[in-house]
C-alpha cells in the first residue's frame, strides 16, 4: 500500500545562540492513506519539529519528507493544523474563524456552500448554535472543537494535531476523543497526532510511534489492533493494559531511565 506520508531517515539541527542543537536524527514515520498515527516521546525531543516538517514549514537538513508521493519543499494547502493553543481570532465569530482557511486556499465552493460546510462541521463536533459567538464566550474544550473544525474546513489530506487536548481536563479530553472518532467517520482524514497521553494514543490511533530523547529517532512502533468502533471501555481491557505497559516502558527507555528490555 502506498503511504500518504513517508518520512525517511530525516536529520535536522537547529543553529541556536548556544551552538548547534541536533533535534532529529534518524526519523522514520510512514502513514498510510486514511491512517491515524500517534507520536509520543519525551518532552522537548522534537515532536513539534516533526509536525512542522510535514506541514512544509521546515525543510530538514537531510532525508526527505513525502506527502502523496511529492517531496515537501514548502507549505502546501493540503494540511490542516490544530495546536494545544486553539489560536482562535478573538475579533471573529466562531463561524468566521472556521472559514479562515478558505480565505487562503482556493475553493470551488460558493460563499453559501462554504458557510453550510462550516455549519455542518460545527454541528458535527457539537457546536451547533455557537456559530455567531466570539471565542471568548467558549470554554477551553469548545474552543478546541472550533479549532478542529477550522483545521478540517478545506478538506486537507493531512491533519496535524500537536497536543490539541493537552490543556484540557480529563473528562473534556475523553469527550473530545469520542468526537474525533465521530468526525473521522463522517470526514475521512489522514492524521498525525502528537500527544503526551498514552491512553489517548491507543484510543485514537492505529499506530503509535515512540521517539527517543533528543535528538529524536524512531525508537519503537506499536500497531494498535483494529477493534472497530472504539469506546472508552476498550481502555480497560487486558489488551489495552498490555499495550499501555509496553508504551510506558518504551517512554522510560526514551527518557534514559531504564535500559531496553525485550518485549515479546
Amino acid at each position: 500500500m502506498e503511504n500518504l506520508i513517508e518520512i525517511a531517515d530525516v536529520r535536522h539541527t537547529f543553529q541556536t545562540a548556544s551552538g548547534p542543537l541536533p533535534v532529529l536524527d534518524g526519523l522514520e514515520v510512514s502513514v498510510p492513506e486514511g491512517g491515524f498515527v500517534a507520536v509520543v516521546g519525551p518532552s522537548g525531543c522534537g515532536k513539534s519539529t516533526l509536525t512542522r516538517l510535514i506541514a512544509g514549514l521546515l525543510i530538514p537538513d537531510e532525508g526527505s519528507v513525502f506527502v502523496h508521493g511529492a517531496r515537501v519543499t514548502g507549505p502546501r494547502a493540503n494540511v490542516g493544523m490544530a495546536f494545544q493553543n486553539p489560536v482562535l481570532l478573538e475579533w471573529r465569530t466562531i463561524l468566521d474563524n472556521v472559514l479562515l482557511p478558505l480565505e487562503i486556499v482556493a475553493s470551488p465552493l460558493s460563499k453559501t456552500e462554504k458557510q453550510d460546510r462550516a455549519r455542518k462541521l460545527l454541528a458535527l463536533v457539537g457546536l451547533e448554535g455557537f456559530e455567531n459567538k466570539r471565542p471568548s464566550e467558549l470554554s477551553g474544550g469548545m474552543k478546541q472543537r472550533a479549532s478542529l473544525c477550522r483545521s478540517l474546513i478545506h478538506q486537507p489530506e493531512v491533519l496535524i494535531l500537536d497536543e490539541p487536548f493537552g490543556a484540557l481536563d480529563a473528562f473534556t479530553r475523553e469527550d473530545l476523543w469520542q468526537t474525533m472518532h465521530k468526525v473521522k467517520a463522517e470526514e475521512p482524514f489522514t492524521a498525525v497526532l502528537i500527544t503526551h497521553d498514552l491512553r489517548e494514543s491507543i484510543f485514537l490511533a492505529d499506530q503509535v510511534v515512540v521517539l527517543s530523547g533528543r535528538p529524536a529517532r524512531t525508537q519503537f512502533t506499536l500497531d494498535v489492533p483494529d477493534t472497530g468502533i472504539r469506546t472508552l471501555d476498550h481502555l480497560y481491557t487486558p489488551e489495552a493494559a498490555e499495550m499501555l505497559n509496553i508504551l510506558r516502558h518504551q517512554i522510560e527507555v526514551a527518557q534514559g531511565r531504564v535500559p531496553a528490555k525485550d518485549v515479546a
Binding site: 514549514l57 507549505p75 502546501r76 493544523m81 493553543n85 489560536v87 481570532l89 475579533w91 487562503i104 478545506h154
Partner: peptide, 29 residues
Amino acid sequence: LEPEYRDILRALGASQSQIFWKIALPKTL
C-alpha cells in the same frame, strides 16, 4: 505574536501580507 497564529496560515501557503492583514494587524489593534 505567538508562532502558532502565523503557522495556521503559513501552512496553507499564505503570504506575509495575508498574515499581516488577517492576523497580525487586527491582533495588534
